[in-house]
Amino acid sequence: MILDLHTHSIKSDDGRAKVQNYCQWIRAREIPIDGFVLTEHRQYDATSDYSSLASEFGLCILKGSEVETEYGHVLVFGVTDALLATFDFSDIRLPLQRVVEACAAHGAIPVPCHPGRKRVGMQAHVGEFGVPEGVRIVEIYNGGSRAREDEIAQTMADDLGYLGIGGSDAHIVSHIGRCATRFPATISNTPELVEALRAEDFEALTFKT
């Protein structure tokens, strides 16, 4: 099963894509993914219900978040009410260690994203803050990466022994599915996604041309 683990809809301040149009696009263009995770910036969208779209288009649509730390941006998979109560998702200066510890306590998975990017990527801050504890997975393929950003991310992952995922970081409809992650098992809900990530059996994919 292939999921795009990093997407934004109009719920994000810089997102311009409606979820329905993502679904239409995936099917019309035969994008080789089975679903996607909406990781809205600095929030968890607890209210939107995409189950009817998921059913209509035969796609898995899950929700996570993208929070901001001193190490850059971090995807969070497995957000629960309990996790939401532990830190302010809208805070743009979250300590990564606090996010990592909160995720560990509440069964969620933190994944630093576009780690090769200046300012908002983890690699740019390792020199200043050191290698963070508790990170197991980073995003090594990001659909919005420029120049050598993915290469930097892969080198960092290799050097530090991290596993890698892929996500498009789509903000507009036509960018979905440019990168993704393949899992051996079928995933149909967030707990199954978290379990699959925890099993550490997945492969980052890029479809960028």
Partner: peptide, 27 residues
Amino acid sequence: TDIDEEAGNVEIDLTVNNEAGETRVFG
């Protein structure tokens, strides 16, 4: 990326890419 025939509206994804294929501007 979206057509609303009733309202007469069409939505278009726009991307400005450089020679390396990097997206500089989208909208």
